[in-house]
């Protein structure tokens, strides 16, 4: 019987992102980097809330968003589990989201005045750093 997987994440209160968003981002990152495998059980709403010392409703909201996006699935009476990866989004939607993310990224980075090559190189390095874990 699968036991609850520990969720090692931190939230920062001074962060511009709201707490629920921080949780959503962290869980997504962990699933994307295979720290959490499909079928792993996540901590209960109350349990995670107590671990982070936040309002349980905030955790519930984060979990709801993750479930709506397809990252998590709820099994009746048992709790929340990491969903099996399948295409949750259509190609058009994926493409649109990538465009948005790129736009945001560029927006943030453009004023820093780095040459595009250096930015690309940095980006590539970071992707590579994540990749090994992804394949494991």
């Amino acid at each position: 019987m699968p036991r609850t997987q520990a969720l090692m994440l931190q939230i920062a209160t001074g962060d511009p992102r709201p707490i629920s968003k921080q949780i959503v981002d962290a869980v997504r990152m962990k699933i994307a980097t295979a720290e959490l495998s499909p079928g792993d059980q996540l901590p209960s709403v109350r349990g995670l809330a107590q671990q982070l010392t936040v309002n349980p409703n905030t955790v519930a909201k984060a979990y709801a968003e993750l479930t709506a996006e397809g990252w998590l699935e709820s099994r009746q009476g048992l709790g929340l589990y990491v969903a099996t990866p399948r295409q949750r989004l259509s190609d058009a939607e994926r493409s649109r989201r990538l465009d948005e993310a790129i736009a945001r990224f560029l927006h943030d980075v453009i004023a820093l005045d780095y040459p595009p090559d250096e930015v690309q190189a940095r980006l590539h390095r970071e992707f590579l750093a994540l990749a090994p874990r992804k394949s494991a």
């Binding site: 209160t13 707490i19 982070l52 936040v54 309002n55 409703n57």
Partner: peptide
């Protein structure tokens, strides 16, 4: 204390 509020408030 905003730190508290952020954690606690709905």
């Amino acid at each position: 204390q905003m730190e508290e509020i952020e954690r606690v408030a709905d």
